[in-house]
Design a protein around this nucleic acid. Structure first.
Lengths: 199, 199
DNA sequence: ATTAGTATCAACACTGTGTTCAGTAAAGGA
DNA sequence: TCCTTTACTGAACACAGTGTTGATACTAAT
């Protein structure tokens, strides 16, 4: 019926796309290989030529999203960001991170959502923590004990992700990428101010 | 072999306990009714006398934990807390919330964890948001637009939960209940100060 | 002694899994 | 053009777990 013989790459993409659709419909828990195959318009046997099970598809999809996210988060220079934010301007690398998330909004929303994967939010927090907060914490290093710093990092990484999740859940339309960046800036600025002056 | 004929209540408890054990071992995804029954030392048929499927057990367990959590969170009076924290003292209702979580540490850690349920963290955040933040936001009401407030709530609820998760993941032994309450206080005080004075 | 409540055990059809194997259709190099 | 490779199909298989049913048994309260 359809134009068969896709390339290896296209089929894998179709399966990952089918996973997003199926999670949204029935939740990851209830997704079956059978459903995945029929949603992707491939034979069930073909599925097993590419993936071991639905968990491997999820892992592949998450890794794809995290890699792209990380490539943008990397460009955030905490100290530079801090100075630009203080002047009330938008810090561009931050806007690009949010743009990246908006481009894959459905995937992020679904996987982070109630029907998604409990591991993904932890992995996203790790990206923020490793790429931003580890470099930012230098500011208050002499002033704070390392125990407190661990919790400060957990606090901030969760907070940043929480705001993104709220935005995704609200359909990411009421607030533009620039507005969300502004909201983040206002919130983060609160903390940056304090970690460098108080305690 | 064992002393059979438990009460309805005891069997349900045994099943819920088996769920926690099984999630930790294989992850909620891979938990089966068969495993649950054998872990709880009951017949598989008996399981169906109490629950429809593993999802219903999870729902029951989550509701149980959330109800208890909420009963403690209710006693937190944000304004009162704010004044006590400013003096450097511990706010007792807050300590009791953390004690409640410590008492069910395994359950909270496992369900919030990577192998747990993606919906639970959202529900916990809602408890914090509804019971604490909704009453706290009155402070800055005239000063902030409601859009920003929504995101501030998401920011804080996620941050609070993030710190608790970090604590649970670290085995909740390195830091005592009182120390965690202090850490929370220091972090929350940052924000409270700002929401009531700045902007 | 009867009854209600709780649990056991075995059997059932059913759905989804993971694998295998024979077959097909297109792309492209010799 | 022939031939090999690559990518997929379709049918079959044994196997795991599901959800239900019907017969049975123990225990406690009335």
């Amino acid at each position: 019926m359809s134009i068969h013989k896709m390339m290896n790459f296209e089929t894998k993409s179709a399966i990952k796309n089918a996973l997003i659709i199926q999670i949204e419909e029935v939740g990851f828990e209830r997704v079956t290989v059978k459903n995945l195959a029929s949603t992707a318009n491939i034979n069930r046997g073909t599925f097993y030529l590419h993936y071991k099970d639905k968990f491997e598809v999820m892992e592949d999809l998450q890794q794809e999203l995290l890699n792209e996210l990380e490539s943008y988060v990397k460009h955030v220079q905490p100290l530079e960001a801090f100075h630009i934010l203080k002047t009330g301007q938008l810090y561009q690398p931050f806007v690009e991170v949010i743009t990246c998330i908006k481009e894959h909004a459905t995937a992020f929303r679904v996987i982070l959502g109630e029907q998604g994967s409990p591991a993904f939010s932890k992995r996203m927090k790790e990206v923020f923590s490793n790429q931003i907060l580890d470099r930012l914490s230098v500011i208050g290093e002499e002033l704070q004990d390392s125990g407190f710093q661990q919790y400060l990092k957990a606090f901030l990484a969760s907070a940043i992700l929480g705001v993104i999740q709220e935005w995704l859940d609200r359909g990411n339309e009421d607030v533009s990428v620039e507005e969300l960046a502004t909201i983040h800036s206002r919130l983060v600025l609160f903390i940056c101010n304090l970690t460098s002056t108080q305690y």
